[in-house]
Amino acid sequence: MSGLARVVGLFLLCAGTGQAAAACSTGNAKSADFGAVGSVALGAAAQTTSTRDAGIECSGQVLQPWEAQDTYFRVTFSSANAGLLGPTGDLLSYQLYASADRNNGAALIPAVPLDLVGQGVIDALGLLQSASGKAMPLYLAAAGGSNVAAGNYEDTATLAWEWRYCTASSGGGVCSSYDTGSGVTTVPVNLVVQNDCSIAAPDLDFGTAALPSAFAVVNGSISVTCTKGSAYSVGLGDGQNLAAARRNMRSAQGELLAYDLFQGVSGIRWGSVDTERRSSAGADVNPGPGAGVGRQVFNYNAKVYADQAPVPVGRYVDTVLVDIAF
């Protein structure tokens, strides 16, 4: 009797060495939020984000899960809007990846199943090697070089999951039990594009003269590229040495030389408040809303006031702030 008990006990121990219970299930996914991005930054480079939970979680530990026949773990991606859809109908393309390095082999192509086993994603994540349960993350990149209007861009990424892997073997590498399942999860994706501009404002040089009245009028221009569809105005600050409602350049000795900047040939002072500002509709080149590409140009005349007293010899400088208001 005791010998039989020992044989039975040995058999149970051997059968147990191949056991590895595991299970996967789908549920609510976490959203992927790119946050707020200026249009200039979006046009210059791709933006990235991730979600730590794409809606599928696996728990338990699997021993060599892919050695059995007919095992797989794959996901198929579809997009509700074929990209991130904005308020004016602009589409911003983005890409989903199953790996943090966002390599092309791990990219999710719409309607094309991605083999997460063949790409090494499952093993790299340890998705089937966590006793406490582990969620599947996803990584995203919004295309750089995009020219879109400001606003909230949204999409819903639908993920169809399918899996079949060995959860127990009966010895000799023969699988005796599989976890087989499928499910669908949805990941909300959003990105906010903010109004922004790039500004080119070359230095202004009056040259050299003996008297304030001898300085010639200097023509200059400021060019900007602002977000597609944006209406804006351009203001010029009063500089660092405003006195008696005039801009002033200052010498190293503290002497002042009064000058001003005027809107084109109109004679209207170009300032930073109210009617002193210039609207995008009033640009001298390409007037109207921002286009996101190209340049809108605003011309100005710069004059040293002739009615001021002579000033000591020296180098006179000032700095004027250019601001954009939407």
Rank of each mutant, 00 (worst) to 15 (best):
residue 47 Q to E: 10
residue 310 P to N: 12
residue 303 K to F: 05
residue 302 A to W: 07
residue 239 G to L: 02
residue 71 T to W: 06
residue 63 L to N: 13
residue 169 S to C: 07
residue 41 A to P: 09
residue 10 L to F: 11
residue 241 N to T: 05
residue 149 A to H: 02
residue 25 S to G: 13
residue 191 L to E: 02
residue 319 T to W: 10
residue 183 G to T: 06
residue 29 A to V: 01
residue 99 S to R: 11
residue 311 V to W: 08
residue 249 M to I: 11
residue 137 P to G: 01
residue 64 Q to V: 04
residue 125 L to Q: 15
residue 182 S to Q: 15
residue 76 T to R: 12
residue 215 F to E: 10
residue 233 S to H: 09
residue 231 A to D: 11
residue 24 C to Q: 08
residue 52 R to Q: 12
residue 121 V to R: 12
residue 235 G to V: 01
residue 275 T to H: 08
residue 304 V to E: 02
residue 76 T to Y: 01
residue 34 F to C: 03
residue 215 F to W: 11
residue 49 T to E: 07
residue 313 V to D: 08
residue 194 Q to E: 13
residue 109 I to D: 03
residue 249 M to F: 13
residue 44 A to E: 14
residue 231 A to Y: 13
residue 114 L to E: 01
residue 251 S to H: 11
residue 130 S to P: 14
residue 164 R to F: 03
residue 202 P to V: 01
residue 317 V to Q: 15
residue 60 G to D: 03
residue 177 S to W: 02
residue 310 P to Q: 05
residue 181 G to V: 11
residue 175 C to W: 12
residue 161 W to V: 05
residue 206 F to L: 07
residue 290 G to R: 12
residue 107 A to L: 04
residue 203 D to Q: 10
residue 237 G to M: 09
residue 184 V to C: 06
residue 95 Q to N: 10
residue 9 G to Y: 08
residue 159 L to R: 12
residue 196 D to K: 02
residue 134 K to H: 06
residue 320 V to K: 05
residue 121 V to W: 09
residue 305 Y to D: 15
residue 276 E to P: 00
residue 275 T to A: 14
residue 155 D to M: 00
residue 112 V to C: 01
residue 320 V to S: 04
residue 37 V to C: 02
residue 21 A to W: 14
residue 144 G to S: 02
residue 44 A to T: 13
residue 248 N to C: 14
residue 111 A to I: 02
residue 126 G to C: 05
residue 133 G to S: 06
residue 98 A to R: 11
residue 229 G to P: 02
residue 106 A to G: 12
residue 193 V to D: 07
residue 235 G to A: 05
residue 244 A to Q: 15
residue 154 E to G: 00
residue 273 V to A: 14
residue 13 L to Y: 15
residue 246 R to Q: 15
residue 251 S to D: 05
residue 126 G to F: 08
residue 306 A to T: 11
residue 40 V to E: 09
residue 134 K to C: 00
residue 278 R to G: 04
residue 189 V to R: 05
residue 39 S to W: 06
residue 83 G to W: 00
residue 273 V to C: 05
residue 182 S to G: 15
residue 213 S to G: 11
residue 178 Y to A: 06
residue 271 G to N: 13
residue 223 S to V: 03
residue 260 D to F: 07
residue 92 L to I: 00
residue 316 Y to V: 01
residue 223 S to L: 03
residue 13 L to G: 14
residue 200 A to Y: 01
residue 197 C to R: 10
residue 111 A to F: 15
residue 118 G to N: 07
residue 260 D to H: 09
residue 274 D to T: 09
residue 142 A to R: 12
residue 103 N to A: 06
residue 191 L to I: 00
residue 150 A to I: 07
residue 326 F to I: 03
residue 278 R to V: 11
residue 149 A to R: 02
residue 312 P to W: 01
residue 296 Q to D: 03
residue 135 A to Y: 08
residue 104 N to T: 13
residue 241 N to K: 11
residue 321 L to S: 14
residue 217 V to Y: 03
residue 251 S to I: 04
residue 268 I to M: 06
residue 326 F to G: 13
residue 168 A to Q: 14
residue 236 L to H: 02
residue 296 Q to M: 05
residue 27 G to R: 13
residue 321 L to E: 15
residue 64 Q to P: 00
residue 170 S to T: 10
residue 101 D to S: 14
residue 110 P to V: 03
residue 83 G to V: 00
residue 184 V to D: 08
residue 257 L to W: 07
residue 307 D to V: 10
residue 169 S to I: 03
residue 14 C to L: 14
residue 298 F to Q: 12
residue 195 N to R: 15
